[in-house]
Simulated assay, not measured.
Amino acid sequence: MKIAVIGGTGLIGTQVVAILKAAGHEAVPHAQSTGVDLLTGEGLPQALRGADAVLNLTNSPTFDSASPAFFEKTMDHLLAAAGQEGVGHAVILSIVGVDHVPDLDYYRAKVLQENVLKAGPVPYSIVRATQFFEFMEAVLSWSADEETVRLPSTPLQPIASADVARAVADVAIGGPLQATRAIAGPDVFALDELGRLTLAARGDERTVTTDDTAGMFAAVPGAVLLPGKDARIAPTHYRDWLTA
C-alpha cells in the first residue's frame, strides 16, 4: 500500500512511518518541512496522488480558542484533496473521552475535527488514544515552581507513544472502520500519583501537592478520560517505561 502520513515528522508520525515501511508498505512522511501545508492546502494534491490511505497526525500549534479553526480548516483541505485524488481511507488520531470535556477549547476542537471527517466524502477511521507517557513532563510543568508541582487527582490510563503508533499503523493498512477505535495503556493512575512516580524516577526532589483546581486537567469531570470496555489495551506499563 501507498500511505501518505501528514505530520509524518512528529512524535507519532515518525514511528508510524517506520512501522509501515518495515512491513513493506510505501509510507511517505509529509509536513511543512517537505512542502505540505494543511492550513493553506499547499502541496496536498501532490502528496496524496496515488495514495491508498492518508493519515492526518498533525496537531494544532495552540491549545486555546484558535484550535477549532485550525482543525476545521485543515480537515477541509485534507478531505477536498483526498476526494480529488481518489484516496480510499482517511485516518485521524484523537483522544479517548474527548467529547466529555466541553470546558476545554482543545478538546472541543478535536471533536470538531472528528465530526468534519465523519461528514466528509472519504471513508474514514478514527483512533482515540489516552494521554501519552511522553507528555507527562509537559503536564508537570503547567503548574509547577521550584519546590512544588500541583496536580489534580484526575484518573488517567496513559499509553506509550510507541503503542499508539502501532495501533495507528494497524488501522491504516486495514479497511476503513467508519467508526472509532479506542486504545489505552494497561494501568489506571490518578494524575497526582503519576506526577509522584515521574519525579521519583527522574530523581526530582520537588513535592507533588494534590490540587483539583490546578492545570488543564482540572476541567475534566470525573473519570471521563478512562476508556470503555471495548478499548484495546496496549502492553507497555508506565513504571516499566520510566525505568527503560
Rank of each mutant, 00 (worst) to 15 (best):
D105M: 01
D99T: 08
L78M: 06
L117G: 08
P158S: 07
L78N: 04
D170M: 06
L93N: 13
M136Q: 13
E72A: 14
N115R: 15
Q178P: 05
G86M: 02
L151P: 00
A109D: 14
L112R: 15
P121D: 15
F132Y: 15
T148M: 07
V91F: 10
Q157E: 05
I95L: 13
E146V: 04
R181N: 05
H77K: 05
I92N: 01
P121T: 12
H100Y: 11
A119Q: 14
L177H: 08
D170N: 14
T180R: 00
A182M: 11
A169C: 06
A82Y: 06
P152G: 04
Y107G: 00
E134K: 09
D163Y: 02
L151D: 03
P61D: 11
I126E: 12
L112Q: 15
L112K: 15
M75F: 11
L151T: 03
V91D: 06
D105W: 10
D170G: 14
S161C: 12
L104T: 06
Q178G: 14
A182K: 01
M136A: 08
K110A: 07
A82K: 05
A160M: 06
S143L: 01
F71A: 02
H89V: 09
I159M: 09
F71Q: 02
Q157Y: 04
A167F: 11
L156G: 05
G174T: 07
H77L: 00
N115I: 07
G174N: 10
A138S: 12
S94N: 09
E134F: 10
P61A: 10
D64P: 01
S125P: 11
S65K: 10
F132H: 09
W142D: 03
S125Y: 08
V139P: 00
A172M: 12
D170S: 13
A138P: 00
S125E: 12
P155F: 07
S141W: 07
A162H: 07
V91Y: 05
D105T: 01
V111E: 14
R166G: 15
V122L: 09
S161H: 15
F71N: 03
E72C: 05
L112T: 15
A184S: 13
D170E: 15
V168Q: 07
E72T: 13
G83A: 03
A66V: 06
E147V: 07
L151Y: 09
R108A: 10
T130I: 01
L93H: 14
A66M: 08
A179G: 15
A167N: 14
D99N: 15
Q178T: 13
Q131K: 03
